Amino acid sequence: MSVVPVITIDGPTASGKGTITSQVAQALGWHVLDSGALYRLTALSALQKELSLDDEAAIAHAAENLDVSFSAEGAMLESQFVGDAIRAEEVGNAASKIAAYPQVREALLQRQRNFRTLPGLVADGRDMGTVVFTDAPLKIFLVADVRIRAERRYKQLKKKGISASLTSLLEDLQARDLRDTTRASAPLVAAADAVTIDSSHLSIEDTVAKVLSLWQRS
């Protein structure tokens, strides 16, 4: 077992994983792994290279050779800042599709594990607790009602000045949930030893406090 502590935060799209992960890590002074960003970066690279999203081998090759880095300013792909680009709905949908490919997941697995460095790591994703960091001393499964998640995403996009349809967002989230929970490779599911937190009616601060309290008791 690794001596580096890790907290995993898994859950469906727009459940607030990224925000909670970032704030928990900040409170503890730990590193952050946004595993979804790696899949989004792979998807963006594939779209830029005009690869077929149905070509698993080609997408896996792109994942293996991904030229990415992370800094305080955000994610970089081939030395270009792409923080906003990877949050586009087209990229998110493509990421959800390619994340179902076993070859792509395998290509990114060790890259994700390499983020586990001292003093500790808070990792957010779909299979952090079930596949990537199975020995994590604290595993969180963060959920929220799909309609509330759609409303949160809608507000985020509007705040950024991005046009969006609440109805379309709801349909996209429902489709992604179905794809994520039914895929053959590492489906979205709570680890047997995970603590489920429903953030539907919790503030960000309350959710962060819950996670930190659980960590203090673990």
Rank of each mutant, 00 (worst) to 15 (best):
D124T: 05
A100K: 09
A107R: 14
T167W: 00
Q112V: 08
S79V: 08
G120H: 08
F81M: 13
A184E: 14
A194K: 02
L138F: 01
T167P: 00
I86R: 04
A88D: 14
E89S: 14
D135G: 03
D124R: 02
V143T: 14
A184F: 00
L157D: 00
S168E: 15
L157P: 04
A190E: 05
T130A: 02
I86N: 05
T196A: 12
I162V: 15
T196W: 08
A136I: 03
A88I: 06
D180I: 01
L188D: 05
L178P: 00
R105Q: 11
P187S: 12
A194L: 08
A85I: 13
A190F: 03
Y101W: 10
A123E: 09
L108H: 01
D127R: 05
A192L: 02
A75V: 14
L77F: 04
V146L: 05
G129N: 10
V68F: 15
V195W: 10
F133L: 09
L118V: 13
N65H: 15
L66K: 10
V122T: 06
R183S: 02
A186D: 03
D145W: 04
L77E: 08
K160F: 08
Y154R: 07
R147W: 01
D177V: 01
S163N: 05
R126L: 03
T167A: 11
S163F: 02
S200C: 05
V195G: 03
A136Q: 02
M128L: 09
K158E: 11
G83Q: 13
A88R: 15
E64T: 13
S71Y: 07
V146E: 10
R153I: 04
S79D: 15
G74W: 11
T117Y: 00
S96H: 06
A186H: 04
D198I: 07
E151M: 09
L109M: 13
L142P: 00
A99D: 13
R105H: 12
A136P: 06
L142E: 09
D84M: 09
F70I: 03
F133Q: 04
R111L: 09
A88V: 10
T134W: 05
L157Y: 04
R152S: 07
R105T: 11
F133H: 03
M76F: 15
R111G: 04
D135S: 11
S96C: 02
